[in-house]
């Protein structure tokens, strides 16, 4: 029996005015799989993620979650799908006006699934699972370092025990050691929860640590996808150039030379 993909993208097309961002994205992510999308800045990674999350609306194409078409979905159905999602944003996107514990349990409190008096304990438990001590719960997000903010963001993403986790550039702006800590945490938590994960990044050490499968996006199309171990033998000049970080190759950066 063939499993239904957890997420299936078919012919996804998105443009902003005359600027084409996604040409025709086709991608399947199977249940329990950790898929990492790589690609340069402006290649369409974030837009793909935001289309799946329902934050942007594609002009055409199909996005299926557990076999259910999400484009054009009614608001109540969209909310039901949304409850399957957890997301770690690039800048953590913690709510400045709330203390850390309320940030972590925001989704649970807002949906009424948790009572306020129980929320702090749940937050502390989730903070522990990302290596943060209970006293962090009472701090404000502005009092945390970048690495701590990412970990609180991760705790918030996993607090409602979602089926699908999204990570947007999880290691950007972190030192290599903290980046590895975050990669490690992501791998552990995703495995422990049995969740499906979709990460977008251009950090190759994240790819090697997090990914089961890798897809490369270039000019709004998936130009290569395969298991993580095949990425070094992809026979694809674009992938080769990207993973080795070479300036010379088929990918030309738009840099004006004087």
């Amino acid at each position: 029996m063939i499993d239904t993909p957890k997420i299936r993208l078919k012919g996804l097309h998105k443009q902003f005015g005359p600027k084409l961002v996604l040409d025709s994205i086709d991608l399947d992510i199977m249940p329990g799989e950790s898929m990492v999308i790589i690609g340069g800045s402006g290649s369409g990674k974030s837009v793909t993620l935001k289309c799946i999350l329902g934050l942007l609306h594609p002009e055409s194409g199909s996005i299926k979650v557990d076999g259910e078409e999400t484009i054009g979905m009614r608001q109540n159905d969209r909310k039901r799908i949304q409850e399957k999602f957890g997301m770690l944003f690039q800048g953590a996107a913690l709510f400045d006006s709330l203390p850390v514990w309320e940030n972590v349990t925001f989704g649970l409190l807002a949906s009424g699934k948790t009572r306020r008096r129980d929320a702090k304990d749940i937050a502390i438990e989730n903070l522990r699972s990302v290596g943060l001590s209970p006293d962090v719960a009472l701090l404000s997000p502005s009092e945390l370092s970048g690495g701590m903010q990412k970990r609180v963001g991760l705790a918030r993403a996993i607090a409602s025990k979602p089926e699908i986790l999204f990570f947007d550039e999880p290691t950007t702006g972190l030192d290599p050691i903290m980046a590895d800590v975050i990669n490690e945490l992501i791998t552990e938590r995703v495995k422990e929860m049995g969740a499906t994960a979709l990460t977008i990044t251009h950090d190759m050490s994240s790819v090697r640590k997090i990914a089961d499968k890798v897809a490369m996006i270039y000019k709004g199309n998936i130009i290569w996808s395969g298991p993580r171990n095949d990425i070094d033998n992809s026979d694809n000049a674009y992938v080769e150039q990207f993973i080795h970080g070479r300036a010379e190759g088929p990918i030309q950066m738009e840099v004006l030379k004087t």
């Binding site: 934050l55 997301m87 944003f89 690039q90 996107a93 709510f95 925001f106 807002a110 409602s160």
Partner: peptide, 13 residues
């Protein structure tokens, strides 16, 4: 601009 509103949407709010 700091994606907090997007984050709110992903938390079903």
């Amino acid at each position: 601009v700091t994606e907090q509103i997007d984050a709110m949407s992903t938390l079903s709010t």
